[in-house]
Design a protein around this nucleic acid. Sequence first.
DNA 1: TTTTGAGTTGTTCGA
DNA 2: GTCGAACAACTCAAA
Length: 488
Amino acid sequence: MTVRSAAPLPPVLLWFRQDLRVADNPAVQAAVATGRPVIPVFVLDCESPGPWAPGGASLWWLHHSLASLTRRLESLGSRLILRRGRFDEAIPRLAAETEAVLVVASHLYEPWAREVDRQTEETLARSGVEFLRVNSTLLFEPWTIRTRTGGAYSVYTPFARACFAAGPPPSPVPAPARLATPTRWPTSDVLAAWRLLPHAPDWASGFRATWTPGEEGAEARLARFLDRGLARYAETRNRPDVDLTSRLSPHLRWGEISPWRVWHAVLGSALAPSPSVESFLNELVWREFAYHLLWHRPEMPSEPLRPQFARFPWRNDPQASRAWRKGRTGYPIVDAGMRQLWQTGWMHNRVRMIVASFFVKHLLLPWQEGEAWFWDTLVDADLASNSASWQWVAGSGADAAPYFRIFAPVGQGEKFDPNGDYVRRWVPELARLPAGSIHAPWSAPPLVLAEAGVALGRTYPFPIVDHAAARVRALAALAAVSRERVYP
DNA sequence: TTTTGAGTTGTTCGA
DNA sequence: GTCGAACAACTCAAA
């Protein structure tokens, strides 16, 4: 019997993008299924996305998530190769270096990514390398949910009905026991050298105290939510003062956990079926809807979906914009939210609606500007969800909001933070105000303010706009735009 | 084809 | 304090 040394089997590139997990990852499964050596790679491309390159908070998260993914891959006997540069240059180059015959990656749905993926595919094909893309991040890919006439949905409820009728999403699959390694590893950047973490100043201390990026952190969040949050989710989901929401958004954004893993865990809980379960599943479907809209309306991140809003009389007011960003509007619930965002990279969803409505309707500032701030400061900044939600609040989204829906910051505060605990936590200069005064300190009796150590205009600002006047102004602006006919 | 019912999350006013 | 009604007109999805 002759012993021949066979030529080494050409490897496959396993390209991680927004699916930074090894468990339950169809891209990983597809790579393993080839039976070839697997070279895991992550490419940091801050050029192709243009204005939608990850913001500061996202980069903080990404650093830790990549560190976690590296450890996970090492536990499977593998590595994570880090490269920097344009996708359509870095991946073909690495494929050539390693003589890979196949690149496997998850689908991306961002407009810029569709363009660069097309380029990548073309370049790879010229060298005879196949580019296989799979779904690792959505319950239903955007093109699979269609109306009766084959079109795209633009109203949530029928979209959601179609999703629930589409049948269950795939079931979770465990991580492989190990990944086959190549005979030679390509070179890799050093994560720390990317300098994704803030320094001078280090603004991330609140982030570190709040989050554990990575697959394990995601599983822990899910377990905690199933254990403590889900049962009363329907009642508590709108309460920023009780910390019972899932907080899975940043984990989902980087694909550290799959939405179908969450879907089945929630449906499989002893609590199903219940209004809370249904309500939580709908939040997952809202994420799907945002991707559906982004896929079919790629201009969504920058252009209003309702064309007449292009002529909305937005103001330019850097001072007001700055007061909003810094949490110094004089409306406690707004300021609490903006400071929670600044310090932890996250804001409770109810409060997101309140601060966004305030920005757009009370201040008449363009939603794109608020969207950009969220993009930079949210650890869960997701192009689809962020742009769809800002358009929804602005009323320029496909899913028309009643023109008269203008959140009243005081009323919302009293309704959803009834004891004022959320405000107390994030706006400490108001901490000693009683619940009855904390959402509208300017109307508190002078004695109450004095006893709480609050000196309006000094320790905490007066409201930068009057609610009633701002409401009337916004209604007038909205009415003008909606009556204005749009001629092609 | 035309028609019909409905549309995440709200606020205010007056009885 | 509570409750119900009113608040544009429009577009979408489906029958």
